[in-house]
Nucleic acid binder design. Structure first.
Lengths: 237, 237
DNA sequence: AGCATTAAGTTAACACCGTCAAATTAATTG
DNA sequence: CAATTAATTTGACGGTGTTAACTTAATGCT
């Protein structure tokens, strides 16, 4: 026969070395600084060697993106570990998520948006699993809070999880993008956002009866009245 | 004397031609497809000509980013134009913002996150103005809703605007990033998010008394009790 | 032992990129 | 017409992703 193939562990070890170097380059100097040549230089191999483990830069960045999800998942898990009360866990989780995003904005940004025309992200099972698991931490805590009666949701826990995640992510994004007006800081907004969502999600006038939105064709129909909120106006024209 | 310099209009026209081509390339194929050479090829000039109008690719992308903010601002303005009732405007505005983001996810993503180590975004007055104006549309509507009594905020209107923006942006981001679990769509979440924030922002238990967050050093202090929400637990260790 | 086999890694090459200096074109004034 | 000088083009450099050809080295077979 011939030389035997590397074991799965050896391959994984190589992949992680490459990803370590790539992540370091990315966090230090952005995505354009991530190059096979610089990675190879850091690893002491030739510039074409990593191609055996990542068939393209896009694939490498996708793996990097999955790592970012694993990182935020871990940050949330570690934050809630010392606590058992679901509502406390939810607050701690939100705090940890946002702090992690602010401390490593580049790595955080990697989780969202591609800025490159690529459909590889849709086909990576590893990335899909990492996404699922990171959201799962949030969903689990919200569900526990709901089941324990501490958070009396008027929507299902999954919807509530999505809203919490979206709210937290929105704050981090706006802060990183410099969207907050002068004098305002995210510090004051985080507790307000969490409290607002908690209050709103327990508001009796809110239930799962919101009509579905039309994403195209018909316009402005989503402005229809919602119970206890507002009465619509004359339609345009 | 000598040949006279281009007028400000001529320069601006050139800049817009370049930005048109750049935006087209970006939306079609991502940021890496935006190159001086391809732009020049589209414009029928030499690959170095655009350098007279944008001294670097980073500067060009920053101008593109400002354009993205002007675009979303315009989408919001056009959406609310036919209406006068502030609460209706707020709903229509949120709907327009989110639909715009979903229809052009690449352009939308340009507004947030850099993915490149660059501090030029901080020094561009044009970009700063575009950011301010786009948020201003939201703030104006929220303030009007507050002043008219239609939206009885327990926080100041600017804070509420930030929360609305963050919530809407969070939903768009999660949708574009494929974060929603299978079977769920953003269509059902948008009205829920808006209604939740509206309900939460009018909730009497919420006021501006939320303690500021510690962003570093001290940990887990943000999990402290908030009125009417939860009672904290034993601290870790 | 020696050799064939074949996985892992290297080198060479290509097209493309951002960027800048030098050369070139073209419009305006004296 | 000629000098001046803004606008543009050309040439060049180092860096990039990617592929193909080549080299190295470990294994099993005879």
């Amino acid at each position: 026969m011939a030389r035997q193939t590397f074991s799965a562990e050896q391959v994984e070890s190589k992949r992680e070395q490459i990803l370590d170097a790539a992540m370091q380059l990315f966090e230090d100097s952005g995505l354009s600084a991530v190059s096979f040549r610089k990675i190879s230089s850091l690893l002491g191999c030739s510039y074409s060697a990593p191609y055996r483990y990542f068939s393209s830069k896009e694939e490498l960045v996708t793996a990097l993106r999955a790592r970012a999800y694993r990182w935020i998942e871990q940050a949330m898990l570690e934050a809630i570990a010392p606590y058992t009360e679901p509502l406390t866990q939810l607050n701690v989780l939100a705090d940890a998520y946002i702090r992690a995003g602010l401390e490593r904005p580049n790595r955080y940004a990697l989780m969202f948006f591609e800025l490159e025309g690529s459909d590889l992200g849709q086909r990576s099972l590893e990335l899909a699993a990492a996404k699922r698991d990171s959201l799962g931490v949030c969903t689990k805590v919200v569900t526990a809070a709901h089941n324990s009666g501490a958070l009396q949701l008027t929507t299902d826990p999954l919807t509530a999880s999505h809203l919490f995640w979206a709210g937290a992510h929105g704050l981090v994004s706006l802060q990183v993008a410099g969207q907050f007006v002068m004098g305002r800081t995210i510090d004051a907004l985080v507790p307000t956002m969490i409290a607002t969502l908690m209050a709103g999600l327990q508001h009796p006038q809110l239930s799962a009866d919101s009509p579905p939105r039309k994403t195209s064709k018909t316009k402005n129909t989503a402005a229809a009245a919602r119970p206890g909120v507002a009465i619509p106006e004359e339609p345009p024209k």
